[in-house]
Design a protein around this nucleic acid. Structure first.
Lengths: 339, 339
DNA sequence: TTTCAACACGAAAACGTTTGCAAGCCAGTG
DNA sequence: CACTGGCTTGCAAACGTTTTCGTGTTGAAA
């Protein structure tokens, strides 16, 4: 690993002082036109790049944003990251991504690592395990230490900071209403257990939509999947036991599993059963039949989160605004599965 | 942004020198048991964490790996990243991810940024635009500056460094042979234009498989998609014009588009036409019919790349081994589309 | 009492920057 | 000639660490 070109070396070569070099490269008029040109030419020739680390140390700013997400092999998070990247780069920030793999311990470790000077602030979606055990001291601690944080998607109420969330309830409501408009009367929902915040909200939206149309909620039609690995069979069983004309799946996995099971049963989608899904992926458009979905606008979410964070990072001390929670609205994309 | 606790502050509070604190925390016997305990207790109480930036500057090592990929909203890259993350974290390395969005300029910018001291080395898949224009000076430059780099997936021959590639040709060959075994005789391929290295290799594999079975390649059955946005119609047209009993799609998009088009034409998969796809996603297993695929083992690729890089980073100077190119083998996963 | 080793700690340099300030030089002015 | 002022440039401190090399204080041996 060759040592990189530093100010000191340039200074030695050109027989001037380090400060002169620094000033020349920063185009200070303090340095005579002659010397400045000479130094800049030399720097360009040998391709000088200032050392970010040294700059970070000096400025006590890294211009780096840390992202901490539960999993990366997930289309939704990928889109959020893309959104964050976009505005971060526009504003001259770099991005570090860490993945907790939905483990509490990993989350704590990564957070400590990032807080150790590598980043100026965080954008975080908490791990499932963390939500489950309800221990948020690590989040509170880094905030307490003065690092700005934005929570998104999997947020936690108890932590005070900026937040960006999807209007899950509204989205679910929209989905179910769409099914109602299409004439469905017995609408089932395939959702997650309640400690997953988004699942809970979507279930709420489902209830709300039905109630607002005066249809009582039949608890038989609410399937909560605990174990993702056994979801296929549970869904198949659910579909065999309950007679429905509409299904709302809170994610693509559940919805496609349902359609697959119906397909095996010889039930036609959308002719006999219509399906609407929450979506985070590219699967929906390609599926046969293509899925009517509630789109989540992950990129927009990432952009908002990044903007919130950067605003806070660049706010003058004492000028801090109160914490905000921004809502991302969903939109219904009609496709074949609910025609 | 509260200033974080530093050695200097601990020293002041406890009325000792900075060096004493540093040594105590690092458990040097030089410092008396008493003072050591006192300092460690204090540090623990106030939750002292050494500043990574300062350490990086001092050690001229960041223990950070830079990943540069063309796009993140892509299941394959997500799996590779997951693999890299895994071994990086095991070895105490951090990971920075940058995305070029397939733009040459972005790639150059990001590379310069990362090379500016933020990382010890790179793992890179080059942008499509870069492959197209064949300008690799930026890659060569950072290598020349002494930063180790590992290229993966979208590699470039001209750059001398470690590489990890998928055996695309072998995979394609396997796919086509599978179709032949299933009795297909007129097998079409839907692939990319040749400047995309993986597309080219997969096309070669296709030819090889046919030739090895004594079947001449009919150029009419080779569809090269240039413009992804118009792929749907091109594929539909291709299927209408050519009579085939087997189709090999070099990615999930092409394969599912083909099945969709066949579906519309009333042609049954796999009964009338069998389909095999290269795969990088989770779509295959869920699709109806589920897709027989050539799996790419992205995580394994990431792990290998990370190991290669870390080995080089930790090699003693003068001990460097010659550059290696590691091959990842693909595997055939049989599902419904080729039954 | 002197000398010396062992022990406990501190000073300072280094990593690569930036920047306020001091200082040198030269020309012009009184 | 002595000052002043402008123009250049260098010095040094600072960011938070680690580490080498002192240095001062013991207690014991000579």
């Amino acid at each position: 690993m060759k040592p990189k070109l530093t100010l000191k070396q340039i200074a030695r070569e050109l027989d001037v002082s380090v400060s002169t070099v620094s000033k020349a490269l920063r185009d200070k008029t303090e340095i005579s036109e002659d010397t400045r040109q000479k130094i800049k030419a030399f720097a360009k020739l040998y391709n000088y790049r200032p050392n970010n680390i040294a700059l970070s140390l000096k400025n006590r700013k890294t211009r780096t944003i840390g992202i901490l997400i539960p999993e990366i092999v997930h289309h939704f998070y990928a889109t959020v990251i893309a959104g964050i990247e976009k505005v971060a780069h526009e504003q001259g920030y770099n991005v570090i991504i860490c993945v907790s793999n939905n483990s509490f311990d990993h989350e704590v470790m990564n957070l400590e690592m990032l807080a150790g000077g590598s980043t100026d602030g965080f954008i975080v979606a908490v791990a499932k395990e963390t939500q489950q055990r309800g221990d948020y001291h690590h989040l509170k601690e880094v905030i307490h230490q003065g690092m700005p944080m934005v929570l998104f998607d999997r947020i936690v109420e108890e932590v005070e900071c900026d937040k960006v969330i999807i209007d899950d309830e509204e989205g679910a409501c929209m989905a179910v209403k769409h099914l109602l408009e299409r004439g469905c009367r017995r609408i089932g929902i395939i959702t997650t257990v309640d400690y997953v915040s988004v699942g809970k909200l979507r279930t709420q939206g489902y209830r709300k939509a039905l109630e607002s149309c005066g249809i009582p909620v039949d608890e038989q039609l609410v399937l909560k999947i605990e174990d993702m690995d056994r979801s296929e069979e549970q869904i198949a069983q659910f579909l065999r036991e309950q007679k429905m004309d509409g299904i709302f799946g809170v994610n693509e996995e559940f919805s496609t599993s349902a359609i697959r099971a119906l397909h095996k049963m010889g039930v036609k989608v959308p002719d006999q059963v219509r399906v609407v899904s929450f979506s985070d992926g590219s699967l929906s458009a390609r599926f046969i039949p293509s899925l009517t979905t509630i789109n989540q606008h992950g990129a927009e979410m990432g952009e908002k989160a990044a903007n919130l964070l950067i605003n806070r990072l660049e706010a003058d001390p004492g000028e801090e605004e109160p914490y905000k929670t921004q809502m991302i609205h969903t939109s219904l994309v009609e496709r074949e599965s609910s025609l």
